[in-house]
Amino acid sequence: MKPGFRILPHTSEMGLELKAPDWASFYRCAAEGLLAVYGARLEGRGRARLSWSFRGGSPEDVLVAWLNELVFLVGTKRFRLSGLEVLQAAPDGLRVRILGERRRRLPLEREIKAATYHGLKVRALRSGLTARLILDV
């Protein structure tokens, strides 16, 4: 399975469909999908390095916590992400290094309030991992 994401239409919100061959690329795809909803992508060279980790719960818990961390970083801290290093990825945990820099202004296409649990199910297939989730925008 090739890693990727697709933005799904939703009447009032926006959705993301994710697929990836392994957990590390799955969480990375989720981040890239979220950035695409913001109208942004991993780019530039940032000097700041942040560490983030989450342990415990289901893959859905990890995914929601990860995306909501990014919502905080991008939406509130105006952190422009330039790179991600997935240090450890599993169904019940994630440890990443986030590269980028804080900007005084960070143009974004829209505000994302949060990633939701609505109808969220991370499926582990023989070919890889898939999920659909709804973002409150």
Binding site: H10, T11, S12, E13, T116, Y117, H118, G119, I134, D136
Partner: peptide
């Protein structure tokens, strides 16, 4: 009412 998340809007 329309499709929301959790509860409909």
């Amino acid at each position: 009412a329309h499709w929301g998340y959790g509860m409909p809007v």
